[in-house]
């Protein structure tokens, strides 16, 4: 019987309590078929290094928690099999362009602060309809295609780690927040372009993007934030030239008279937000 193959993990360790510079540590563990980098990290934590820290949750490329710098590329640890990394050691470090909290845990707060600053949600005037809906907002398949791919973003931060502009410019919002701002600007149900423009037209906007395209290459979900940024630039340039005005947000589709609610579909839960504090956007 053959001895099980072994794989070496070279992991960058950092302990904020000790305040010592980050260092590299090697761990050799048995490799099994189908083993992901996340599986390897779990094995190391269980058998060799119980203090090893990282962030993960779903184990299937959905939650976006386990973004790491694996063999020189930002990837999801749960989505990367060690077999696809070649025969050398598996090098794992925290995502670059972020501060490190501990070991493989990046501080993603700046990214989410920039994300929140660009109002990444549907903004409309009709608050009553939004919080006490009487129907669905109409949207054609073509209108959906305008932004659908950008909804697949899981906010893992891989694009931010790959972006050369994020590496040097702390003011630049970065591909994830900008891609998500465009996702809502391009949504036919949204009327918030004017609100978002206050931030996008300034330093936080897409103007520092050099179209290196590394964000799109790094995205584990196949999203193309570089495209979103170029489309956003075009939209903002046309807006400055008075050649663009956002169309009125889609209205509610009136249900067909004969249609009735299916008895097995439950009612929507009661609102959990304070409707009176909802933000407004200019009337269409």
């Amino acid at each position: 019987m053959n001895a099980p193959a072994r794989v070496t993990f070279r992991i960058r360790r950092f302990d904020p309590v000790r305040q010592s510079p980050p260092s590299w540590e090697d761990f050799e563990i048995p490799a099994v078929a189908g083993m992901t980098v996340l599986d390897g990290l779990r094995t190391i934590k269980e058998t060799l290094a119980p203090t090893l820290a990282w962030r993960s949750s779903c184990r299937m490329g959905v939650c976006g928690s386990c973004g790491m710098f694996i063999n020189g590329h930002p990837r999801l640890a749960c989505n990367t099999q060690i077999a696809e990394l070649g025969s050398g050691p598996v090098t794992v470090a925290p995502l670059p362009n972020f501060d490190t909290i501990r070991d493989l845990v990046p501080d993603l707060r700046p990214m989410f602060d920039k994300h929140a600053a660009l109002s990444p949600y549907i903004i409309r005037d009709d608050h009553d309809e939004m919080y006490e809906p009487t129907g669905e907002y109409g949207q054609t398949p073509e209108e959906l295609e305008e932004f659908l791919q950008f909804t697949y973003c899981i906010k893992c931060g891989c694009c931010m780690a790959a972006c050369p502009t994020c590496a040097t410019d702390p003011v630049y919002s970065g591909p994830m927040p900008l891609g998500q701002a465009h996702r809502y600007n391009a949504d036919s149900r949204d009327g918030g372009f004017t609100t978002r423009k206050t931030a996008l037209a300034g330093d936080q906007g897409p103007w520092r993007c050099h179209y290196a395209g590394e964000c799109s290459r790094a995205c584990p979900k196949g999203v193309d934030p570089a495209r979103a940024i170029q489309l956003m630039k075009r939209q903002l340039v046309f807006d400055y030239l008075r050649l663009y005005s956002q169309p009125c947000p889609a209205g509610v589709v009136t249900p067909a008279p004969a249609s009735a609610r299916r008895p097995d579909v439950p009612e929507a839960p009661a609102p959990t937000v304070d409707v009176s504090r909802a933000r407004t956007s200019p009337s269409c």
Partner: peptide, 9 residues
């Protein structure tokens, strides 16, 4: 607004 204007020019 400033960067939007400068970029357009």
């Amino acid at each position: 607004m400033r960067d939007q204007r400068l970029w357009t020019w």
